[in-house]
C-alpha cells in the first residue's frame, strides 16, 4: 500500500521573544492509502494545530509534510490553492457550508471551481448524495436541514473531488449523539466503500473507535499509538479509554 501522508519532525511554535508555545514539537508519522486515522489528545495538546499544518491552513516552523511525494511546506500560494482543490477534502466541526447556496450547489462548488462539465457535475453529486443518504435534501438550503445532514453534506463536498486525503476537525463536535453515530458510520462507508483516506482530529473516544488507528498527542508530541486490527469496536473503545486515563484529563468528557 502506498504512503499518502508523511510527516517528518514537524514543529510549530507560537509567540515571540520570551514566551514560546510549542504547539507541535517534533511529530513524525505516516498515513497509508485507505487508512482511517484518528488523532486524539486533551485540549491544548496540539491536535488541531497539527491538522491545520497538514491542511495548509497554517505553516510549520520546521519539518516536512509530504502528501503523495510532494512537500507541501515548500509550495507557493497559488500552487497551494490548486493543491487544496485537487488533493484535499475538509470536514469542519461547524460545517462551513455557504448559506447562500443550496446543498447541491455546496457540494458541487469544488467541481465548478475545477471547471467540470455541468452534466457530469450533476451526475457526480447525485451519486455521492445517494451513497451518503442526502438525496432528498439536495435542493434545500443549509438552514433548512439538520446538523447531521449538514455535516454529511460537508462530507460529500469533501469527497466529490476524489481527494487523496480527507481531513476532519472534530466532525461530530456539533452533533447530537444519534447524528454523530450516523455520521461516523457514513465516514466508515466513505473509508471502506469509496476508499477515502481520512485523518480525523477528535477528543471523543467514541468517534475514535470507528477508526483503524489512533494517535495520542500530549504537549505537542506523540504519546502513544494503537491499532484496531482484528479487535471489535467495543474492545477498541475500551482500549482508547484506558489510554485516555493514562493521558489524564478529558476522560470525564468521554461519554
Amino acid at each position: 500500500m502506498s504512503e499518502v501522508l508523511k510527516l517528518s519532525n514537524v514543529k510549530k511554535y507560537y509567540g515571540r521573544n520570551k514566551v514560546i508555545t510549542k504547539a507541535v514539537n517534533g511529530i513524525s508519522f505516516q498515513v497509508m492509502k485507505g487508512e482511517f486515522v484518528a488523532i486524539m489528545g486533551a485540549s491544548g495538546s496540539g491536535k488541531t494545530t497539527l491538522l491545520n499544518c497538514i491542511a495548509t491552513i497554517d505553516t510549520v516552523t520546521s519539518g516536512n509534510i509530504m502528501v503523495d511525494q510532494t512537500d507541501i511546506t515548500r509550495m507557493k500560494e497559488d500552487a497551494l490553492a490548486d493543491f487544496r482543490r485537487c488533493e484535499l477534502g475538509f470536514v469542519f466541526q461547524d460545517f462551513n457550508l455557504l448559506d447562500t447556496l443550496t446543498i447541491r450547489e455546496n457540494i458541487a462548488l469544488s467541481l465548478v471551481v475545477n471547471n467540470f462539465d455541468s452534466n457530469e457535475i450533476d451526475n457526480l453529486v447525485d451519486s455521492i448524495a445517494d451513497k451518503l443518504d442526502i438525496k432528498e435534501i439536495l435542493e434545500k438550503f443549509p438552514y433548512e436541514v439538520s446538523g447531521g445532514q449538514k455535516q454529511r453534506c460537508a462530507c460529500a463536498r469533501a469527497l466529490i473531488n476524489n481527494p487523496k486525503l480527507i481531513l476532519a476537525d472534530e466532525p461530530t463536535g456539533s452533533l447530537d449523539s444519534k447524528s454523530a453515530r450516523i455520521l461516523l458510520e457514513t465516514m466508515q462507508v466513505m473509508n471502506t466503500d469509496l476508499e477515502a483516506t481520512i485523518l480525523m482530529v477528535t477528543h471523543d473516544a467514541f468517534s475514535a473507535s470507528f477508526c483503524s488507528r489512533v494517535l495520542f498527542l500530549k504537549d505537542g508530541k506523540i504519546f502513544n499509538e494503537i491499532i484496531k486490527g482484528e479487535k471489535s469496536r467495543k474492545e477498541f473503545f475500551e482500549e482508547i479509554l484506558d489510554i485516555l486515563t493514562l493521558l489524564g484529563g478529558d476522560v470525564l468528557s468521554v461519554k
Binding site: A55, A81, D82, F83, F90, L98, V113
Partner: peptide
C-alpha cells in the same frame, strides 16, 4: 471556506 475549497 472558499480558500479551503481551493479558490485562488
Amino acid at each position: 471556506t472558499y480558500m479551503i475549497l481551493g479558490l485562488k
